[in-house]
């Protein structure tokens, strides 16, 4: 494992009476790709803003390569590349002019602006549209240009704030291809999202936050292991199950955990072949009508559910 290039220690931020980030600490090793996962309002964007020096934390510190950011003009900011959630582009400037402008903010020379601009456009597949303004682009193209702008000064650390919001699956795949290329080039990536599949595809480690606190910080494999090697089985009933059924169902052979959500019963089971017949028989004996039955391997959603008791996309 490489030494940490980005360290977050005890970050806290309040806006009036609202506690946006209560206590967030984690670190990212050089070349690592970490997913910062949490539902809307969990404090992800506020955390990212503090990392990028956009807002000052009430408490805690951010270390870039072991050194805290000091002020607006700290050269360490050059090591960061921020991809905001909003499309931070000038719609009336051409794609090349956008790149040149944002690159110039990092004092790049004209030659660097030209060469790196061309390379960034090439990476995101927009070389042919360099002279066109973003207002003529599709949503996915704008997202890709939004990513390219953050690459111009060749940052070591990429801070991505939900970079695929509102794009079609094809564009999302294109962005992921770009990010995988960057990861392969050794960039450190902190990827904020509430899409589990994105974290699973891109990241080796995940930091789960909710209500401004870190709930879990572990490699993906470890988190899955915490949930066991078992499987997840969901039984849809015609009517919600009575609350006293949960304890009884938990005692059935092969069943590890049971949770009820509206008319669904969600089982964590060690062995489907043992648990499913026992569960269906018990439900039939107690007059329950099963409308649907499905099973899946545990994923981040189940991890998040078990950690927070909430679905990831709940607001």
């Amino acid at each position: 494992m490489n030494p940490p290039i980005l360290e977050v220690r005890g970050l806290r931020k309040t806006f009036g009476s609202l506690v946006a980030v209560e206590e967030v600490s984690f670190s990212v090793a050089a070349g690592e790709c970490v997913g910062l996962l949490g539902p809307n309002g969990a404090g992800k964007t506020t955390t990212l803003s503090m990392l990028a020096g956009l807002i000052r934390p009430d408490a805690g510190e951010v270390l870039i390569a072991g050194r805290a950011l000091t002020g607006d003009t700290d050269p360490a900011k050059r090591r960061l590349g921020l991809v905001p959630q909003d499309l931070a582009l000038y719609e009336d400037l051409s794609a090349a002019e956008n790149l040149a402008f944002f690159g110039a903010l990092y004092s790049l020379s004209r030659a660097e602006l030209r060469d790196r601009g061309a390379a960034a456009l090439d990476l995101v597949g927009l070389s042919g549209r360099a002279k066109d303004p973003p207002r003529t682009f599709s949503g996915g193209m704008k997202r890709r240009l939004n990513l390219a702008v953050a690459l111009l000064h060749d940052p070591e650390i990429l801070l991505l704030d939900e970079p695929t919001v509102g794009v079609d699956p094809q564009s999302r795949n294109a962005i992921f291809d770009n990010l995988e290329t960057l990861r392969a080039r050794g960039k450190t990536i902190l990827y904020t999202t509430h899409y589990l599949e994105e974290v699973e595809r891109l990241c080796s480690r995940v930091v789960i936050v909710d209500h401004g606190r870190v709930l879990a910080d572990a490699p993906l494999a470890e988190l899955r292991a915490r949930e066991g090697e078992g499987q997840r089985c969901t039984v849809e009933l015609a009517a919600p199950a009575p609350a006293d059924w949960i304890a009884a169902l938990r005692g059935l052979p092969g069943v590890r955990r049971v949770a009820a959500r509206e008319s669904q019963l969600i089982f964590e089971v060690a062995d489907l072949t043992v648990a499913v017949p026992a569960v269906t028989a018990w439900l039939a004996q107690h007059g329950a009508q099963i409308t649907q039955l499905s099973s899946a391997r545990p994923n981040l959603e189940s991890v998040f559910l078990s950690l927070t008791g909430r679905n990831l996309r709940d607001d």
Partner: peptide, 15 residues
């Protein structure tokens, strides 16, 4: 409002 401010403030330039 459009998020450009975040990008401008993220750059190492003074107020």
């Amino acid at each position: 409002q459009r998020g450009l401010w975040r990008r401008l403030r993220a750059a190492p330039i003074s107020r």
